[in-house]
Design a protein around this nucleic acid. Structure first.
Lengths: 167, 167
DNA sequence: ATTGAAACATACAAGAG
DNA sequence: CTCTTGTATGTTTCAAT
């Protein structure tokens, strides 16, 4: 980890810290990304033009990575969710990359965590029922040669924190 | 679990299945919730007014739960994320509810999974550094009387699946 | 359900205080 | 940062199909 040998020249985002208003904007847009600039400006106590500028800066600077609609999985007929903990035989780069890609290629996968700990991956999946879950795990996970251990936990509830980054 | 004693009368969402166009709308809005209605209509091959109606229906019917901005945690100075697996002493309703609420009250918590398996909860947290992580866990999790076991996994990467519900 | 067009609102850019 | 002006763009309603 030599500072003279930077492996990744990352965009460095924002050297200047985000002020109180920026944070208020981020909190508001996390809760409702479809707020009009007008409403947003009123909430954070700014003129519309200033607010508009700030939002543009936050998006352009990569502070805001995107805007996403949250869809109820039950509406898509997949009311059963699970977290599948996976341990690989060896944590080589090739194994990690190929497993990760395979998981993201699954329509049933909602999110993939690559972690350091007892397991290597946690894959959040949504399926119709337990039959589909079993089938998915056997077909798409257990069957992979790099996988040596799988442990499944049904998800009762998945709550997101509304105001992340508030104070 | 008597069917004559339903604990929750849930909205029942949509009895009618979502058609191909609805799904296309959902996929598009998951990837970019800030698509203009105009662009969205063009993508799914509908007139603006029809598309607008459908989106309204999907939101009103609870199929779309909300629109959220995704914020880069590094921009907020919290570049270290972890998944904290927690086991409770007893899985009573009181213990589960109070632990859940306590976790969601933490600004460091991004998401809380209540699961069935070896553990009872998985809490996704974002902190500045490992010192803050240790402090958070000791102060807000381990210290709780209902908690009997905690296991922390650092998150190397958290990838979201773009087109959930595609086919 | 879907449509096109009118009526309304907003976003966005640029310049001045 | 705020205010303003201006224009382009987008949203929303509605009668008709």
């Amino acid at each position: 980890m030599d500072s003279q040998n930077p492996k990744k020249i990352r965009p460095l985002l924002e050297p200047e810290a985000l002020d109180r208003i920026d944070r208020a904007i981020l909190v508001a847009l996390q809760q409702n990304a479809r707020l009009t600039n007008k409403e947003l400006a009123a909430r954070v106590g700014l003129a519309e033009s200033s607010c508009h500028e700030r939002v543009k800066r936050l998006v352009a600077g990569g502070v805001v990575r995107g805007f996403h609609a949250e869809v109820d999985p039950r509406a898509l007929g997949v009311g059963l969710q699970a977290l599948v903990a996976v341990r690989l035989a060896r944590q080589t780069n090739a194994a990690v990359v190929s497993f990760r890609q395979a998981m993201l290629a699954l329509n049933e996968a909602i999110a993939v965590f690559h972690v350091a700990g007892a397991n290597d991956f946690l894959v959040q999946v949504a399926v119709r029922d337990s039959d589909e879950l079993r089938d998915l795990i056997l077909r798409a996970i257990t069957a992979r040669p790099e996988v040596v251990h799988v442990e499944t936990s049904l998800i009762y509830e998945h709550a997101r924190n509304a105001g992340f980054g508030a104070p």
